[in-house]
Design a protein around this nucleic acid. Sequence first.
DNA 1: CAAACTTAGTTGTACTGTCCAACTTACTTA
DNA 2: TAAGTAAGTTGGACAGTACAACTAAGTTTG
Lengths: 252, 252
Amino acid sequence: MAGRHGQGDAAGDQGRSGAKAPGLDFPRPLTTVDIVIFTIRQEALQVLLVRRGSGPGDPFPGTFALPGGFVDIARDRDLEACARRKLAEKTGVVSPYLEQLGSWGSADRDPRGWSATHAYFALIPGSAVEAALAADVQWFPLEGTGVTPKLAFDHAEILQAAVQRLRNKVEYTSLPAYLMPKEFTLPELQRTYEIVLDRALEKSAFRTRMLSADLIEPIAKMRKGPNRPAQLYRLKKTAAPVYFARTFNAPE
Amino acid sequence: MAGRHGQGDAAGDQGRSGAKAPGLDFPRPLTTVDIVIFTIRQEALQVLLVRRGSGPGDPFPGTFALPGGFVDIARDRDLEACARRKLAEKTGVVSPYLEQLGSWGSADRDPRGWSATHAYFALIPGSAVEAALAADVQWFPLEGTGVTPKLAFDHAEILQAAVQRLRNKVEYTSLPAYLMPKEFTLPELQRTYEIVLDRALEKSAFRTRMLSADLIEPIAKMRKGPNRPAQLYRLKKTAAPVYFARTFNAPE
DNA sequence: CAAACTTAGTTGTACTGTCCAACTTACTTA
DNA sequence: TAAGTAAGTTGGACAGTACAACTAAGTTTG
């Protein structure tokens, strides 16, 4: 690369140019998008993983990885559209919650060369998923922090970052609401919080907080069970996640 | 693209391959890194911007942009190293705080083609900066939410996201401590919080919170002025940002 | 059909930390 | 010495969680 303050170099190289093809004199990294898809199944937080193919040249054949793949610049208008496409392909679901997680790029994360992945994380209800799953994907429960299979690339690191981000945000947001089916009771919502946080919460404080937030509304139905029936709620149309002013417990 | 469940397609296209050059049959997006560098100067939050060159083929010639540029796969081991390099080139400073902000990628954000940028944001003390600035860069105060110059690419959007993230985190973290010089008083720290948040804070609550956090320690010196001298503090060696269990005010 | 059991939901007291305002302290300047 | 100003403290009101005991409403069991 030329000198630091050369004129074609202004704006930090983005303006750098050969005579004709500006920027193209830099070899381009491989660019992918990966998604960490969470759900609640069997009273546990679970992630969707894909078994990798074993064609010639495929790295990490036969191992599991996060769903994702190369950005297709012909089809994907932007990164988020690419993420939504891959999500739909694997689950058949339009995610009620999709957030960018971060990006990971380095010379050695992919044996095929310098590559960068844009990671997203999605929350989907456990209920509507079972049906439309693609053939090569599978749910895995997250016990504690480790997952059962070893993951391809640096996906273990990405997954861990996603879990950490999720746990962190669950402390002070309404994100778990996106893991619930259309209708749910307050104890069910609390159980979802507890599963994600892996920690028991106070019933009365939980109810006070949820009911005073502009988040859910009761419907004219009860959940019948072997015991006292519970009031059913649904998410209000205001889909925006709620941020609470405190965490449930002082962290630490 | 081939069928959804084809075998070379497993693991979401990352395993897709021609006979020899897997992944290379996808045209690659341009890949850049941009940094939003904040400091406090003249009682205001300011951002560092770069004037773009006007060589042939340079997009947005003469306008201002965030410092950044193409990833150099020969020099940059990973994205963060690339960000640190660009930061050092423009400011001569090793940032006390650097965080990934997110990534922006689309077909039309750069006239040269499908491009994706990995954005970082950095906090540096106002003091030590003035000296080593590169020639083509300049500080701009953020008044309210709009910046003075129109920015190249989608950098206005990225900058806005950075400000939002910073303001958000300042509500419940110790991030402003990274904007302070080595030694500072509690009222000075509070003023920094207030500048970033653009809102007055309660003195006693602020002091209680800062002093009970494991964040700063008093040194055997006072800041002398026209009035009562103030105790000087410094950051503890534990560089990790502190997360508080509450925000200062209930948002809204 | 009443008693035992289980989960839903409420109530009340203690405690923690912010909010608000008044106060004391320490220094400079008139 | 008095006035002024910013640093730092103190105390009461208030909000929301922590903890624990309570009531409510259904099912199952004897």
